[in-house]
């Protein structure tokens, strides 16, 4: 998601000042996505350049409200209608890290998996506890955001479980070489070479 679409969605409710947008954006994302006012104004400037919002005359207090344009509405509708592409950076980094751990001699991959799982599990516990505290109906938006984080963390744990069982099966067929040691088992070494060639 982009701040851009977030602001468009807020402006769809009516014209807003920069400070209002910032406050409402943070409220809508349950405080999980803090914005600074500079980001809000640069985004508004870009939206205005692209014809998606336009600035209204300054108020007496020197505040400049913005309103959404028809093109902005089209953009917003499109955004709601388009699925988010799975460009989850942290997960990619983790997958790459595990792949590297697997092919780097002397790394205990199971320990890497376990360390990550414990950390993710702890996060999951913390999110769950926060959720336990949010019971008022007005907290629905906040709970949705929390739920999203919870399900994502859960998916990561499941993926790690899957990695662990794949590793166990792999280790069964090809014993992983000991730390720094030279293995006379060729299979893992071959895998290493293959991977580095690509």
């Amino acid at each position: 998601m982009s701040v851009k679409h977030g602001l468009l969605a807020l402006l769809e409710r009516g014209s807003r000042y920069g400070y209002q947008l910032r406050a409402e954006f943070e409220q809508a994302t349950g405080g999980t996505w803090p914005l600074n006012i500079g980001q809000v104004y640069t985004t508004l400037a870009r939206l205005e350049r692209d014809g998606l919002v336009h600035a209204l005359p300054e108020s007496d207090g020197g505040q400049r409200p913005y309103e959404i344009t028809d093109d902005g509405r089209v953009e917003l509708t499109l955004w709601f209608a388009t699925p988010i592409s799975p460009a989850d950076r942290p997960r990619d980094e983790l997958a790459i890290k595990l792949a590297l751990a697997l092919t780097t001699p002397g790394v205990d991959v199971r320990a890497v998996v376990q360390t990550q799982r414990t950390a993710t599990m702890r996060l999951l516990q913390e999110y769950t506890r926060l959720k336990g505290g949010a019971e008022r109906p007005g907290d629905l938006a906040w709970r949705l955001v929390l739920d999203a984080m919870i399900f994502r963390a859960e998916a990561e744990v499941r993926w790690l479980d899957h990695c662990e069982s794949s590793l166990a099966r792999y280790a069964h067929i090809h014993p992983i070489p000991a730390a720094g040691g030279v293995s006379d088992d060729l299979a893992p070494a071959e895998t290493t070479r293959e991977t580095t060639k690509r």
């Binding site: 599990m121 999951l124 516990q125 999110y127 919870i150 859960e154 499941r158």
Partner: peptide
């Protein structure tokens, strides 16, 4: 299920 385990104090 990790999501359910997360209700615990300790896993």
């Amino acid at each position: 299920e990790a999501r359910h385990a997360a209700w615990a104090d300790r896993v």
